[in-house]
C-alpha cells in the first residue's frame, strides 16, 4: 500500500503521458498542429532514452564518455542500411541494428575502459570522430552528413500492427520502449551490481581493494549502456526513418552529457527531465532566434554549475530533505 502511494506520482504521470494524443485532440489541437506537438514529444522520448543510457555510464559509473553516440548511430545505420540495401524485414533490421551497436560497444569498451582518468574521455571522443569520418568517407553508401532515408511502414507485433506513419502510434512505441528501458535500468541500479558501479564512481582503487573487479565492471557497464544507446537508435530509425553521419559525432554525446547534468546525474529521472526541458527550449529558440539556443545553453549550464551542481532532480531532493528535517 505504502509502495503504491510512493509510486502514485509516477503512475499518474505515466497515465497522462499515455493519453497525451487524446488530450491534444481534446484541447482542439487535432490535425497538423497536434501532430507537430506529438512529434516533438516523441523526439523528446527518443533522446530521453539516449540520455538514460548515458546516465548509467556517467551518472552511476562516473565514466565521462564522448563516444556514446557511436552506438546510437551504429544502431540507426544498422536498421536503415540493412533494410535499404539488403531488404531486411523490420525485425531483422532491428536485430542487426542492436547487434552492431552491441559489438561496437564491446570493441570500443575493450580499448577505452583500460585508459584511466581523462584519457577515457579523449579516447572515446577520438574513436567517435574516427567512426564519424568513416561514415562520411563512405557517403555513397551512408549518405554522409546529408543522410539517407528509408521506408519502414509498420512493425508487426503479431496481434498488433503498429503503423509507423501514424504519429500517435509512433509516440506510443517510443513511450513504451522508454518505460521498459527505464524499468530495466532502475532495477539494475538497485542491484549490488548497480551499487558496484557507484563504488567505481566514488573511489575506484578502494572498490578494487575490497574485491570488486573494477576493470571488468567498467567494461560491462560500457556495453550495457552502449546497448541501451543502441535501443534509442532503433527507436530513432523507426520513427524518423533516417540516418546521417552527424548522428555519430561526439557533439551528440556531449548533448547527452548536458541533458544529464542539467536534469541530475545518477538519478535516471533527471536526464529525462533535462532532455525534455532543453529540447523544448531548443525548439522555442529555433523558431525565432536560432543562435540564441547555444547562448541560453551556456547560461543554463552556468546556472546549474553555480546553483544546482546535482541538477534539477538533485536540487528537488535536497529541498525535500530539508523540508522533512524541519
Amino acid at each position: 500500500m505504502d509502495k503504491l502511494r510512493q509510486r502514485a506520482p509516477l503512475l499518474i504521470a505515466l497515465a497522462l503521458l499515455a493519453f497525451i494524443p487524446q488530450l491534444l485532440a481534446l484541447v482542439g489541437l487535432p490535425g497538423r498542429q497536434g501532430a507537430f506537438w506529438l512529434s516533438l514529444l516523441t523526439q523528446m522520448l527518443i533522446w530521453g532514452l539516449f540520455a538514460l543510457s548515458y546516465d548509467l555510464l556517467f551518472g552511476y559509473a562516473g565514466l565521462l564518455s564522448l563516444g556514446q553516440a557511436i552506438f546510437f548511430g551504429l544502431a540507426i545505420y544498422g536498421v536503415t542500411l540493412s533494410s535499404l540495401y539488403w531488404g531486411f524485414s523490420p525485425w531483422e533490421a532491428l536485430g542487426s541494428g542492436l547487434l552492431i551497436s552491441l559489438v561496437g560497444a564491446m570493441l570500443v569498451g575493450i580499448v577505452a575502459v583500460r585508459v584511466p582518468g581523462h584519457g577515457f574521455l579523449i579516447v572515446t571522443a577520438v574513436i567517435s570522430l574516427i567512426v564519424y569520418l568513416m561514415a562520411v568517407a563512405a557517403s555513397g553508401w551512408t549518405g554522409g552528413t546529408n543522410g539517407v532515408t528509408v521506408t519502414i511502414p509498420s512493425l508487426d507485433f503479431g496481434l498488433l500492427r503498429l503503423s509507423l506513419f501514424d504519429p500517435r502510434q509512433g509516440y506510443w512505441l517510443a513511450l513504451g520502449l522508454l518505460m521498459l528501458s527505464y524499468a530495466a535500468l532502475r532495477w539494475l541500479t538497485r542491484t549490488p551490481l548497480g551499487r558496484a558501479l557507484e563504488l567505481i564512481r566514488e573511489n575506484e582503487p578502494r572498490a578494487e581493494a575490497l574485491g570488486y573487479p573494477t576493470l571488468r565492471l567498467k567494461f560491462v557497464v560500457f556495453v550495457i549502456s552502449g546497448s541501451f544507446a543502441g535501443v534509442a537508435g532503433l527507436l530513432y530509425a523507426l520513427i524518423n526513418q533516417f540516418a546521417s553521419a552527424g548522428l555519430l559525432q561526439w557533439t551528440v554525446s556531449a548533448n547527452a552529457l548536458i541533458w544529464t547534468l542539467v536534469g541530475g546525474a545518477g538519478t535516471l529521472v533527471g536526464p529525462l527531465i533535462g532532455t525534455a526541458l532543453l529540447k523544448f527550449l531548443e525548439y522555442l529558440f529555433g523558431g525565432w532566434w536560432p543562435q540564441g539556443y547555444p547562448l541560453l545553453l551556456g547560461l543554463v549550464l552556468l546556472l546549474v554549475a553555480r546553483a544546482a551542481p546535482q541538477g534539477i532532480v538533485g536540487m528537488l531532493r535536497a529541498w525535500r530533505a530539508q523540508r522533512e528535517l524541519r
Partner: peptide
C-alpha cells in the same frame, strides 16, 4: 551503504 557494499563483495551481483 558503504559497509554493505564492502560486505557484499564476492557475493551475488543481483541480490544482496
Amino acid at each position: 551503504d558503504n559497509m554493505l557494499a564492502a560486505a557484499q563483495a564476492g557475493h551475488s551481483w543481483l541480490h544482496y
